[in-house]
Write a protein that binds this DNA or RNA. Structure first.
Lengths: 114, 114
DNA sequence: TCTATAGTTAGCTATATGGATAACTATGAA
DNA sequence: TTCATAGTTATCCATATAGCTAACTATAGA
């Protein structure tokens, strides 16, 4: 199994592309075949397949081929790793004693930039 | 302001690098100068500065220079965008009627791969 | 058995990324 | 006013990424 850091690298990288996020959005709703997933994209199939490969290597999706049809499904556990990391950062930030002062300062800046 | 999709692209991309995540972890605890942030990394300063640039363009951090010292601080709002997206995917997945069956299937697979 | 369907494999290209060094600017301190 | 500190700018390089086309394999259906 990959270590936690490597997995964060590959999961965040996989999510940094709109095509791949759209695939995840589809697969969050239902398992789908390669053709079904590729259909909305104006992209050659081998190009699309690279995105599927990136998602699969990151652990965000899983796929199996039955006959000539490959079906993909999401693996929600992989999303959890990123959520955990993000929650940790937020917890650190929220635990800071200087948080309120900073937050007010940010609000002031936003107000000024309007 | 960039649109939501572009911002997800750049925020996820920014987080897909261990150096940049380490910077975020530090800044979640306290605002710090460039030198302080760069110190733990065995990397030339201009290389490190590129990471700071990526984080700043993504909106994850902010910086201002006073005298010759540049101080960076985290902007936790930018983390929220990714958390929102991830929560949405999880909600979709959790709302599925076939969820339980899939979950059991995954558990079975994990069991087999032990 | 022929043919269409559903992917796959093998290359090619342009651009982006993550690193480096060298040389520079600007500021604080002695 | 000289010197060290803290970044910055300009260039360069190797590798990774995201796209393409062409040609292929394997299977379902007529």
């Amino acid at each position: 199994m990959d270590n936690y850091e490597n997995s964060l690298d590959s999961v965040f990288h996989a999510l940094a592309d709109p095509t791949r996020r759209a695939v995840i959005e589809r697969l969050s709703q239902k398992a789908s075949t390669i053709s079904e997933l590729a259909e909305p994209f104006n992209m050659a199939l081998p190009s699309f397949m690279k995105h599927i490969g990136v998602l699969e290597k990151s652990g965000l999706i899983d796929s199996k081929k039955v006959g000539r049809v490959r079906t993909c499904e999401i693996k929600p556990e992989a999303l959890s790793a990123t959520q955990t990391w993000l929650d940790e950062q937020r917890a650190l930030w929220e635990g800071r004693t200087d948080r309120l002062a900073e937050y007010v300062e940010n609000l002031t800046k936003e107000e000024q930039s309007k």
